[in-house]
Amino acid sequence: MKSISLALADDHPLMLSGLLELFKTEEEFEVVGTGSNADEALEVGLRSAPDVFIVDIMMPGNVFDTILKLVRYGGKTKVLAFSAMSRSDIAIKTLDAGASGYVLKGSSPQELIEGVKAVHRGETFITRALACKLVEEQRLASLRVAAGPPVKLSIREAQIIAMLTRGCTNRQIASELKISEKTVKNYMTVLMQKLNVRNRLEVLIAAQKLDHDGAPILRH
């Protein structure tokens, strides 16, 4: 069976060394490159084109921009964020940048390995502790929407929500709808205000609770 090629990026030498040792002991993985900051991660990713790139999002440099470029120009490369940050807004921002998964550094080695395999299969993986937190926040968002007045969506807003449900990024939405990314962001701001939510994940949850008198959510 062909091994899964990996690249690793972390600015803490001990953490990077630990990751190397972990994956060297697993025969199904091959580490093809390492980095210690956002710029090195981008260079390593574009040069070695690993199947999965494990990236510490708190490294020096613009890591979110690096993730976006790795996904856009790295071909088959999937990005798995590996971070001590358990804030849901940071996790959502990371996934919005193009990462396929988010694993907390307090997770077990087996969960990290499970995350690598999942994103390599094309799935989205969120570490269990954080997933539970997101589910609870979704529940609270649903309660906030249920308590609010009926909300109607414009056709364009419905189109954007439909594309969000397909996992589209702002850039992909802008391209398909032939509008600018800035315009997409403006629509997202309006949607969050209309639905009384704080981020795009809550927009999706809230949209499912809309009154039937609202505009339909368009499907492709």
Rank of each mutant, 00 (worst) to 15 (best):
S3Q: 14
I4S: 04
L6I: 06
L6A: 03
L8Y: 03
A9M: 09
S17E: 12
S17Q: 12
L19V: 10
L20R: 15
L22V: 10
F23T: 01
F23I: 06
K24L: 09
E27S: 15
E28H: 14
V31E: 04
V31W: 06
G35Q: 00
A38P: 03
D39E: 15
D39G: 04
E43G: 05
R47T: 14
A49I: 10
A49V: 13
V52G: 04
V52M: 01
I54H: 03
D56V: 07
I57L: 13
M59L: 03
P60E: 06
G61R: 03
I67V: 15
K69H: 14
L70C: 07
L70F: 06
R72N: 11
R72D: 14
Y73G: 02
Y73F: 15
Y73I: 00
T77Y: 02
L80N: 08
A81T: 08
F82Q: 04
M85Q: 10
D89K: 10
D89I: 11
D89L: 10
I90P: 00
G98Q: 05
A99C: 07
S107V: 09
S108I: 06
P109N: 11
P109T: 14
L112P: 06
G115Y: 10
A118V: 01
A118T: 04
A118K: 12
G122K: 07
E123I: 01
T124L: 07
E137L: 13
E137T: 03
S142E: 13
L143K: 11
L143A: 13
V145S: 08
V145D: 01
A147N: 15
V151N: 07
L153E: 03
S154Q: 06
I155T: 13
R156K: 15
E157A: 09
A158Y: 05
I160N: 00
I161G: 05
M163V: 02
M163C: 08
L164K: 05
G167S: 01
C168H: 12
N170M: 12
N170K: 14
N170S: 14
R171M: 12
R171L: 13
A174L: 07
S175F: 12
E176G: 00
L177T: 00
K178S: 15
I179H: 04
I179C: 11
S180Q: 04
K185L: 12
N186V: 11
Y187F: 13
M192N: 09
M192F: 01
M192C: 04
K194W: 10
N196H: 12
N196D: 09
V197R: 01
R198Y: 03
R200H: 08
I205R: 10
A207V: 01
Q208V: 05
L210Q: 05
H212T: 14
D213W: 09
A215H: 06
I217D: 08
L218T: 14
